[in-house]
Write a protein that binds this DNA or RNA. Structure first.
Lengths: 151, 151
DNA sequence: TATTGTTATACTCTATAACTATA
DNA sequence: TATAGTTATAGAGTATAACAATA
């Protein structure tokens, strides 16, 4: 019997989540809040609408996350220059520093994982994981269409 | 520049979560509840204490999950034969059927993913993912010990 | 005295629906 | 009329602390 891809991926998922929880313990940061911070770090100031779409959660949800991050000084709401309905959410200096550190740590872990894979397995790993991701995406789209059809 | 392992693993994590959410929509099942059902399906009747440790959440949390699953007819609480403080949580017939279907679907997806990987990449993929998992585990243990030292 | 599970309380993530201000 | 964001309300996961029954 072959080993199980799904189970290993799920195990890695769990490891990640526990790791993040441990890393953020004692701070006001959570996985969701950090997800939002990553968007700002990578894409610059955004409207909440844009964040809502990027993170696939409701606008209401973004309000709550931004409220919390603003309260703790990681982000700031500034008026949108051309649309008075909208706000731009941007990183504060503190938020920027936090994200810089997070990016460093991200790179460190990346290097660790990369180094853990024997050179002769690197290509198989990369191609394999890309194939798995592509297939998962296809399955997800198919399931979504079926769901929409039923609704 | 090389592609990023971490980001791809995180993307797969997201795909999984969205998939599960879609699959459970319209039922009282959620990721956490299904996690508990898997434990019962794989390990048979368990005390809530055992489930708490297996799932790495508090006993209080298990109470809530079991309450919900019991209310909807997936599991049943029966007296522990030798310890009157404890209960055994076990699958009902309904729960058993649900888990049988879930196992089938699990196997189908597993086959899909396996087939998506070109034969010449299979070994590299497996070895690579095991190496990544092992390294992540090491990093997690190390972080945990540091955390305990600080506390 | 230690363990099992519960009640009490609180925080977070998430969603839908109704509403305000602005396009 | 449509869009951006908020208030209102609700369900779910999670945690800590205090407590009852039993070991």
């Amino acid at each position: 019997m072959q080993t199980v891809i799904l189970d290993r991926l799920l195990a890695i998922t769990n490891l990640f989540q526990q790791d993040m929880a441990r890393a953020f313990a004692g701070t006001p940061l959570t996985e969701s809040r950090v997800g939002l911070l990553w968007m700002l770090a990578l894409g610059g100031p955004s409207t909440q609408q844009a964040l809502s779409e990027a993170l696939s959660v409701t606008p209401r949800n973004i309000s709550g996350l931004v409220d919390a991050l603003e309260k703790h000084g990681y982000v700031r709401r500034v008026p949108h220059p051309s649309d008075r309905r909208a706000v731009l959410v941007e990183l504060t200096v503190t938020g920027d520093e936090v994200m810089a550190r997070m990016r460093e740590e991200h790179d460190l872990i990346e290097a660790e994982l990369r180094a853990a894979i024997a050179p002769e397995h690197q290509e198989g790993f990369e191609r394999g994981i890309d194939a798995v991701m592509a297939r998962l995406n296809e399955l997800a789209s198919a399931a979504q269409q079926v769901g929409e059809g039923t609704t």
